[in-house]
Simulated assay, not measured.
Amino acid sequence: MLPDTNTRVRQNTMDSVNARITREAGDRVARLALAGPAAIDRRLAELDAEWDTERTLEANASTLALAGIVLGATVDKKWLFLPGAVAAFLLQHAVQGWCPPLEVLRRMGVRTAAEIDRERYALKALRGDFRGLPQAPTSPAARRAFAAAAQG
């Protein structure tokens, strides 16, 4: 069975790396809670510009593929192996949620879109962006469901 799109990268990342990425985001949110609205605004702008795992993989893969094509056409046809390997890795990532470069990117701290969004929405909640929205449901079952959804 194919992994869920939203969780496939985390499922294929070592638990210690996932924990570090989550801890670092939580630490940033805690620091920014004390730093005030201007710091939160700056961090939200940084998050808007942050590249997630998908974008990083796509940019690196296309760069390597283009380099392989150019080298294959101008230096030696053996270089055409490079775009083939890159395409295979991209297909593997699309299907399984894992490819060899992903492990390196995750260790470097490159986050998934969901991980970036989790930090973004925590900061927006701190800033008060959701004050006008309806409050959490009042029934005990609805409260538990709402709390579980908030934990990701």
Rank of each mutant, 00 (worst) to 15 (best):
F130Q: 09
A25E: 06
A35M: 07
A25H: 05
T53Y: 01
D27Y: 09
A73F: 03
R20P: 00
L64R: 05
T13L: 00
P37T: 14
A30I: 02
R43F: 06
G128L: 08
L66F: 11
P137W: 03
V70K: 10
P83I: 10
M14Y: 09
T138H: 15
M14L: 14
K78D: 10
A148T: 09
A147L: 13
I69S: 01
G97V: 05
R8K: 11
V95D: 03
V86D: 00
A38F: 02
R106C: 07
Q92N: 11
E50F: 00
D27R: 14
L32F: 11
L91H: 11
L105V: 00
T74W: 11
R55E: 10
A39V: 04
R10Q: 09
A33K: 11
Q151G: 12
F146S: 14
A149N: 14
W51L: 13
R120Y: 06
T5V: 15
G84R: 02
R120K: 09
E103P: 12
K78A: 15
R118M: 00
E58W: 10
H93W: 03
L102D: 08
A38W: 02
A113M: 00
G97C: 04
R23F: 10
T5D: 13
A141T: 12
E24H: 00
L80P: 04
S62I: 14
A19P: 02
A67S: 11
E58Y: 06
L57P: 02
A145C: 09
T112F: 04
G152P: 10
R20C: 00
T112A: 08
R43S: 09
F146K: 08
R10A: 05
L2W: 15
S62E: 13
R127Q: 10
E115Q: 12
M108G: 03
